[in-house]
Structure formats: C-alpha cells, structure tokens
C-alpha cells in the first residue's frame, strides 16, 4: 500500500500535540491522580514518536524502546499510586465521607 501522504512528520506532529496537552494538563490540574494521567499522556506521545521514527527508519529499535517505556510507566504508576494511597491514609480525610455514605 502506498502511503505517500502519510509521512513520519504527521506522526511527529500528532505526538507533539499530545505531549503539549499532557504538559499543560500536568501544570493545570491539582489532583495527583489526574496529574499522573497527564504524565502517562506525555509518555504515550513519546511512544508514538518512537514507533513512528522506528518505522520510518526501518528499525525495530523504536519498538524496543517503547517496550521499556511501558515497563517504566508501569513501575512509576505502581510506586506513585502507592505513595498517593499512603499519603491519603495519613491524612485520613478523604475516606471519612464514604463512612457517612454507608449509612442506611
């Protein structure tokens, strides 16, 4: 299939847009969980870049890099969320609402 119109540049532009949205979100939002999600957005933008460039350069290295990014993202999320949970426990504020929700 001939994909003359679809050059690597398109992918890069798309990735850039995604990255920018993620970055802006990271700055704007204050919920730690949503901020984490924005980081994921940025990571995904990078992933797209890797894969697109890898395809453009006919190199599997791009995909391998994405693989590692995935692993690192998973690790980061696990630790990050564990931190959020731990902090929330200490503060003991966020769950009280639910205790009252249970009545009745």
């Amino acid at each position: 299939m001939d994909l003359s119109g679809l050059t690597t540049g398109w992918y890069l532009a798309l990735a850039a847009a995604l990255f920018i949205i993620g970055a802006v979100g990271l700055l704007v939002r204050r919920n730690p969980l949503v901020m984490f999600m924005c980081v994921e957005l940025m990571l995904n933008a990078v992933n797209v870049t890797f894969v697109a460039l890898g395809a453009g350069l006919n190199d599997v290295g791009g995909q391998v890099a994405v693989f590692f990014v995935l692993v690192v993202a998973a690790t980061e999320v696990v630790i990050g969320l564990a931190l959020v949970v731990a902090i929330n426990r200490r503060r003991a504020g966020a769950t009280t609402d639910d205790v009252s929700m249970l009545k009745g």
Binding site: M1, L3, T8, A55, G56, N58
Partner: peptide
C-alpha cells in the same frame, strides 16, 4: 513503510 491492518 507499509501498514496493513490486523485482519491481514
């Protein structure tokens, strides 16, 4: 760069 779809 050729993208053929999943069903291929």
């Amino acid at each position: 760069m050729t993208g053929h779809l999943v069903l291929a």
